[in-house]
């Protein structure tokens, strides 16, 4: 049986917006296809070895807990960089996204990020970006979810994950959302992200399997409920558009 190694980074600290839902979806969608999903939970003092990892999740946490994670992860910065460089699949959400950059600011002040990518997150002045989001991704499908961030992220030439159709996005301007470099996707979208976006979950599974040389196409699953849930929200966002103008800063 094919095995699929899922690494959940610091779930004790980064668990603010139902992030474990992303893990449940990855596990189930592997198992429903007869792929053996093996979950590795990495906590505070554990060493980090991503040599066998197929998918890594770095979730979002409160400001205080995000800072603790950043400090811990700093010692494994090279390991993470190597993993991303070699095409490993990484999903970073909210706080996890901000950590990947060079700097981010929070209620605790300006902090150094891991610096895996040259981008920065500054404190927004006009309150938080909160609400439902719909984007058109560079993977050719739409993604729907929820954003809630005080920081505004400015990319420096990296590819965004998608274009905002409804919502605020990286810098609150309603233009770009997230970051997509190699097989690393970083985004402000939670909800959690993967349940209503099964195509994205499957993209990670297919990419990771290909990376380890398993070229069998993924078995099709019945996603009627997933698609229906996403469709309801996309329809709602389309009609609510006028009431929720993009903030200008």
């Amino acid at each position: 049986m094919t095995s699929f190694h899922i690494v959940h980074l610091y779930p004790d600290l980064l668990n603010l917006y139902g992030d474990r839902g992303n893990i449940m979806v990855m596990e189930k969608r592997c198992r429903w296809r007869g792929i053996e999903a093996i979950l590795h939970t990495v906590n505070g003092d554990d060493p980090l070895d991503l040599s066998t990892a197929d998918f890594v999740l770095l979730g979002g946490g409160s400001d205080k807990e995000q800072a603790i994670v950043c400090e811990t992860l700093m010692q494994f910065k090279d390991e993470l960089a190597r993993y991303i460089d070699h095409g490993g699949c990484l999903l970073a959400v909210c706080g996890g996204y901000q950590l990947l950059g060079t700097r981010y600011s929070s209620a605790l002040g300006e902090l150094n990020g891991l610096g895996l990518f040259e981008f920065e997150t500054v404190a927004g002045k006009g309150g938080r970006c909160i609400g439902n989001v719909v984007i058109d991704t560079d993977l050719g499908f739409e993604v729907v979810g929820f954003e809630n961030h005080g920081g505004l992220t400015y990319l420096h030439g990296q590819h965004p994950f998608g274009k905002i159709r409804y919502g605020y996005g990286n810098d609150g301007s309603g233009m770009d959302e997230g970051l997509h470099e190699k097989n690393c996707i970083a985004t402000y979208i939670h909800g959690p992200l993967l349940p209503k976006n099964p195509k994205l979950a499957d993209h990670f599974i297919a990419t990771a399997l290909k990376r380890k040389g398993e070229l069998t196409p993924l078995k099709t699953l019945d996603d009627t409920m997933e698609e229906e849930a996403a469709k309801i929200m996309i329809k709602r966002c389309a009609t609510e558009k006028k009431e929720n103008p993009y903030i200008s800063r």
Binding site: R20, G21, P192
Partner: peptide, 9 residues
């Protein structure tokens, strides 16, 4: 609360 992600918790 307009965010229902807590359902996954």
């Amino acid at each position: 609360g307009i965010d229902v992600s807590w359902l996954w918790d």
